[in-house]
């Protein structure tokens, strides 16, 4: 008898897989414990102290419905900021989308530097952009809009350049073969293929911008966030919950409309 005949599998997985999984598991849990201990946050506390927490959250209730009328002007400001910022961002992002797609921009150097700039822009949190622009241009809507534009361009260019990279290049070959120049090739062979997604992503970025512009007000960049900041500083929690509920409703409604529009597109 040779050795292999005696072999009886003792485990469903090879030893190496088992080892990798065990190590990964220990690392994940270990890192979790370290994180939990240093930040003194144990999720279990949430459930243990749930009563306590609900009491504190209870300070937000009932919402102060008398406050509703104070919310509208600032809420509309938020929506206006999002509309203007999205519109400008969409226009600005068009050339950059093309520059950041390797099948359109065949120059490696240009393409790679575009990608790098894009990646850096996308790592900057929107609120830090707002902080900087509020510092530069003062408190108000303008600073918020500029911050939103940069934030939105980062997302839009990333999404769209990926769509452009995935298009069918055969039609553009045909347009070039019939004597079209670069702009004609893009307009006739690239644009029709990406237009529905482009509109769809623009609406998506509008949704994101609504959420983001709520937040920007916290640092003085206009919109409904400014109101939240004010009422929190006054510890006027029922008013805060009114604002939050209205924002919630508006976000849901806008997401729904934009979702419906996007469904109709593709």
């Amino acid at each position: 008898m040779n050795k292999t005949d005696e072999f009886i599998p003792t485990s469903l997985y090879p030893a190496k897989t088992k080892r990798t999984i065990s190590i990964a598991f220990i690392v994940v849990i270990g890192f979790y414990l370290v994180s939990s201990i240093t930040t003194e946050s144990f999720i279990i506390n949430f459930f243990l102290k749930l009563g306590n927490i609900t009491d504190l959250v209870g300070r937000f209730f009932p919402p102060d419905w008398g406050y509703v009328n104070n919310v509208w002007p600032k809420l509309f400001e938020t929506i206006h900021m999002a509309i203007i910022a999205t519109t400008i961002a969409v226009i600005i992002s068009v050339p950059f989308c093309l520059l950041a797609a390797h099948n359109i921009t065949t120059n490696k150097w240009l393409y790679n530097s575009m990608r790098m700039i894009l990646n850096i822009i996308r790592t900057i949190p929107d609120i830090i952009l707002a902080v900087v622009f509020v510092g530069l241009f003062g408190i108000g809507v303008f600073s918020g809009i500029i911050a939103l534009i940069i934030f939105a361009v980062g997302i839009l260019v990333k999404l769209m350049s990926e769509i452009i990279e995935a298009i069918d290049m055969h039609p553009s070959e045909a347009i070039r073969a019939s004597g079209g120049n670069t702009i004609q090739t893009i307009w006739y062979a690239v644009v029709p293929q990406i237009l529905p997604q482009f509109i769809s992503f623009s609406l998506y970025v509008f949704e994101i911008n609504i959420r983001a512009s709520v937040v920007l007000g916290l640092v003085g960049a206009g919109g409904v966030g400014q109101l939240i900041n004010k009422e929190i500083n006054f510890l006027n929690y029922p008013a805060v919950s009114t604002i939050v509920l209205i924002i919630f409703a508006v976000v849901v409604v806008i997401d729904w409309i934009s979702g419906k529009l996007r469904e109709g597109l593709v």
Partner: peptide, 18 residues
């Protein structure tokens, strides 16, 4: 938005990482 949730939880458990 996360930051709104954070506002609520800061009110509930105090201004800390938790």
């Amino acid at each position: 938005p996360e930051i709104i949730l954070a506002i609520i939880f800061v009110a509930a458990v105090g201004p800390n990482p938790f």
